[in-house]
Simulated scan of single mutants.
Amino acid sequence: MTYVQGFLAPVKSAKQQEYKEIAEKSWMLLKEYGAVGCCEAWGMDVPDGEVTSMPMAVKKEDDETVVFAWVTWPDKETADTAMGKMEQDPRWGEFMPSAGEVFNLKRTIFGGFEPLLEV
């Protein structure tokens, strides 16, 4: 069954192009390791909430934009195997250190999901 990894990240608004470049490089590795799809979505209408919200979830700062992203895998086993391999892949290490200048990894939220409905 399909498996989805979802991400919510605070990205420096002025670094949108740099984030896109990191996402493109990440996709090449994800695809090589078995991912079947990926979407990186730049927040356009992501309001603050009174009790909870996407900006509150990542503790968004004034100079940041919320990015919502997901990667689709054929199954959880493929995703787990890929993540282990990617962490060891030197190509991953070449561009991930610069990611800290673009988005805050400590405030990024991620999780794995089994779809209930796919259409």
Rank of each mutant, 00 (worst) to 15 (best):
I109V: 14
S26R: 04
E114K: 11
I109D: 00
V4I: 15
G100W: 09
L29T: 12
G43H: 03
V4P: 01
F110W: 13
F103L: 12
S53K: 05
E118I: 12
T52Y: 03
G6Y: 00
E94A: 15
E61D: 03
W92V: 08
M83N: 13
D62C: 00
P55L: 06
V58S: 04
K85R: 15
M83C: 02
E118Y: 00
K60M: 08
Q17R: 14
K31N: 15
T2W: 01
N104M: 01
V102I: 15
E24K: 12
M44T: 14
D80Q: 14
D62W: 04
K59P: 01
A82C: 13
Y19E: 11
E61R: 15
K31L: 08
C38E: 08
A9P: 01
E61T: 14
A41M: 15
E18P: 03
D63K: 09
S26V: 01
E101N: 14
V102W: 08
V11M: 11
P97I: 07
D48Y: 08
E101R: 08
M1V: 12
K31T: 02
D45L: 05
Q5Y: 05
T52C: 02
A23M: 09
P55V: 03
Q16S: 14
E32I: 00
G34K: 09
P10S: 05
W70P: 02
T72S: 11
T52S: 14
L29Q: 10
G43F: 06
G100F: 06
W73P: 10
T81A: 14
E101F: 01
M28T: 13
Y33R: 10
D75K: 06
T78N: 12
E21R: 13
V66G: 08
G34L: 07
P90M: 07
E101G: 11
E64H: 01
G49Y: 07
K85I: 12
K15Q: 15
D89R: 10
D89A: 10
G49V: 11
F110V: 00
V58Y: 05
P47W: 01
K12F: 01
G100T: 05
G43N: 03
I22M: 04
